[in-house]
Nucleic acid binder design. Structure first.
Lengths: 154, 154
DNA sequence: TGTTGACCTCAACATTACTTGAGGTCCTAC
DNA sequence: GTAGGACCTCAAGTAATGTTGAGGTCAACA
């Protein structure tokens, strides 16, 4: 569907952003934006010159992709996190909230992993006790009371 | 320097681990261990059959590499974090402590980034206010009071 | 004796996340 | 009327982080 600069709601031209504008406002490279679109993480429509036009609400989505990437969440996981957030219209409050629950769960896990490592560094290494046997850090599954000694599945 | 199973301190053979043993005890694949060695993150000596032999204290180092990777720290940053921890002898308590300060600084940064994102998801998205203008999350430099509007350098 | 298993090297391949380049369209400004 | 800029597509290249495979050595075990 080719879309022009003025949509059926009579929105002003400014309501659609070019890829260059999105790049400038989010700090994400133009090439990365096209790549994210290819992955389905973001979406755009086209104007009469076949150039991408982004609705404003896409800025938020791009920003979240960018931040998540900085934190180290793989883009594939992001797709899951965005699964129920629509691409073709501004997501509702409830939709963002549902999505944010998924995000928070992912972030929680990461934060806890980091906190465990911080604790270990302060405790085990600080005191020299890093034993390779009982250390929770070295056994992230937290469930390896199996037979045999030594950590598994790092 | 080719080294045999009994070093000049008269240490027992068990004090040296084969690459298979290190892999089993740390959960890190044999191929990954060789790769880490290539990067200089870990080190080994060779026995009379040219096979790698690892001193026990290398286990701790391998475990830290593995954990750091899980948390998303690039291996290059790890080299910095390990800069003052010797490879050729068991690091002293003081050496581990110095290193652990570097680690904690890195971890602290990552943890704060995640906490900021968590806060934003709870606050901004939860309430629908993610404004793209004043949001600290979207402006991680925390120092962009420059001229012009909109975030930069995501 | 022969075959199995653990190890070796070196090269090639895989995945993620992009960037760069070649070749083209359109609009605007000089 | 042409030069520049912003955009387009598609293909190839890059960096990080390994894995896989081919071809070889050596010791131990049945």
């Amino acid at each position: 569907m080719t879309r022009h600069r003025r949509d059926e709601n009579g929105a002003a031209p400014d309501d659609w952003l070019s890829i260059g504008e999105v790049s400038a406002r989010t700090g994400v490279a133009v090439s990365a934006l096209r790549f994210y679109e290819e992955l389905g993480l973001i979406a755009s429509e086209r104007d009469d010159r076949n150039q991408r036009r982004y609705p404003r609400h896409m800025l938020r989505r791009v920003a979240l992709v960018s931040v998540a990437k900085r934190i180290g969440i793989p883009l594939q996981d992001l797709r899951e996190a965005f699964a129920d957030v629509p691409l073709d219209r501004p997501p509702s409050h409830a939709e963002w909230q549902r999505a944010s629950r998924v995000w928070r769960r992912q972030l929680e896990e990461r934060r806890q992993a980091i906190e465990r490592l911080e604790a270990e560094l302060t405790g085990c290494i600080g005191c020299g006790c890093l034993s390779m046997k009982a250390c929770a850090l070295l056994n992230p599954g937290d469930a390896l009371a199996e037979d045999g000694a030594g950590p598994r599945r790092l």
